[in-house]
Design a protein around this nucleic acid. Structure first.
Lengths: 176, 176
DNA sequence: AGCGATTAAATCGTTTGCGATATAAATACG
DNA sequence: CGTATTTATATCGCAAACGATTTAATCGCT
């Protein structure tokens, strides 16, 4: 989600009431506040873009009978099949507490198989069924819609992806 | 408690089919696949960055005793107090089904008041309590941490925000 | 004024996300 | 060996997101 939220305001000024109520921390008119505000916008911009992807994909997902996280999970499996739950978790930044129920639903839908590894009975290997792989074709359709809708050059998209990954890595690094 | 026997624990041998199971969907080597892959990368990069912001803020939020969505809601109220539920929803891209329970929790914590409008009994006006406003002081601290962690120039951030907003707008436009 | 349509919030059911904990298998070590 | 520790997954409980529906108040139209 996001930080300081750019409210849809008619006039961008703070009301007198807000000012005297101390609703805004002192020193937020400073130059540093500009950076803080920008950060807020970045955070919120990412939240909004993610939300927009969610909403955009949802009706297309619905036709395929899956949800957005399920779609992301299938994408990860399309790239590399036969992963362990923890591998998927590393890719998707999720853990078994989230993935196990999700994968069980995908299994019930007949899209993936869940099977204990023979070498290490603790591990569960997730692999796509024929049906799950077939759904991948539909996913390519979905993506075609998305790409057409975006109307961005490949270079622009590539640059954007790099910047986002940079932000993500910095946040991970800073969070330790 | 037993693991609810989700999977056979003892006879689990990996089939040959599983071992050799292919990793890439057929027919995705084309030039078009490049674009499709990029799209999924963009979608995934936004997903990752959003997760990273979430994880980064969580420990800071915990010190304030609130969750991330609650924090954002308070931020929106700090910028403009006394909003209706639907105003908050417009800002945050949420609706009453999500906001009502969240606001009730904030009310129980003594951070906001919920009051039916006298003019229109359908509307509920949300306003910060003194305690809720006081919590706003800690919020600038949180933002400062975020900015320091990012280590990005204002120009880079600004450009990224513009690109993300562009993507968001295009997705909204394309989704109709 | 009367009544159907619209609007705002709340409620319900399902999925997701996550911290904390439990369970079972594998590993380390004494 | 056998037992303590670690590892992988699963379970539990709560918060959140959201589609669908409900309830109550207001609006619009005749």
């Amino acid at each position: 989600m996001a930080m300081s939220v750019p409210l849809p305001q008619k006039d961008g000024r703070m009301s007198e009431k807000n000012k005297q109520q101390g609703l805004v921390t002192e020193g937020c008119e400073s130059e540093e506040f500009q950076r803080l505000a920008l950060d807020s916008h970045l955070c919120f911009a990412i939240y909004k873009a993610n939300h927009a992807f969610n909403r955009f994909y949802k009706p297309l997902m619905k036709e395929l009978g899956i949800t957005y996280p399920q779609y992301i999970t299938l994408l990860a499996l399309l790239e590399k099949d036969g992963q362990r739950v923890s591998d998927l978790g590393e890719t998707l930044f999720l853990e078994s507490n989230t993935l196990t129920p999700l994968l069980k639903r995908l299994e019930e839908m007949g899209l993936v198989k869940r099977k204990r590894s023979a070498k290490d009975e603790r591990q569960v290997i997730i692999s796509l069924t024929a049906q799950g792989r077939a759904l991948g074709q539909g996913i390519c359709e979905v993506q075609r819609c998305a790409v057409d809708g975006l109307e961005m050059s490949m270079d622009d998209v590539q640059h954007l992806v790099r910047e986002l990954n940079r932000v993500q890595e910095m946040l991970v690094k800073a969070g330790r």
